[in-house]
Amino acid sequence: MQALTSKAKPVGRKPMTFWEKLYIPAIAKGMAITFKHIFRKKPTINYPEKTRPFSPVFRGVQVLNRDEEGRERCTACGLCAVACPAEAITMEAAERLPGEENLYREEKYAVKYEINMLRCIFCGLCEEACPKDAVYLSETMVPSNYNRKTFVYSKQELLIPNPLTDPEAFAKAKGARPEKTL
C-alpha cells in the first residue's frame, strides 16, 4: 500500500538485546527520573490561602454598580436584556420619587433586576451594552448550590456594597477593574 504521507515512522521490532532484557538499566533510569521530580518546584497553589490572579479580561458574576455617592447607576433602560444572547436578564422599571435622589442616580430606576445564572454564558455583552456603566462582570465565580431557584440572582444579590457605608467591601467587590469611561 502506498503511504499517504511521509510522516509514518517504522516501528522497530528488533528483539531486545541481552542488556535490554535485564530491565535493570531501564528501571534505574526511570527511578532516576521520578527521583529528580521530588526536588522540582511544585506548580500547585494552596488555593484558599493563595489565589491565582485573574486575567484582566476575566468575566465572572455580574455586579450592579453604584457611583461614588452610593447611588444606583441603573436606569432600567433594558439595553442589557436586549443584548443578552441567552435571555438571562429581566427587569422592571419604576420612576424615582422625590426624596429618593440619594438612592438612584437618574429619574428612572430598576425595581426588579434579575439575572438567571443558569442561563448566563458570561459573554459580557451586557457590560458592553450598558450606557451608564451600571452592570459589569466581576472577578467572582458563581458558587454552587443545591437548588435551581437560588441561581436566579435578585437585585439585592447583584448590587455592589455601598461605598459610603461599607467602603472596604465596595473596594473588594470592585476589584482591580478600571473605571469605564462613558
Partner: peptide
Amino acid sequence: KVAAVIQDRRGPN
C-alpha cells in the same frame, strides 16, 4: 506524600 512529590504535587497538607 511521596506519590505527590514525585508527580510534582503537594499531597495531603
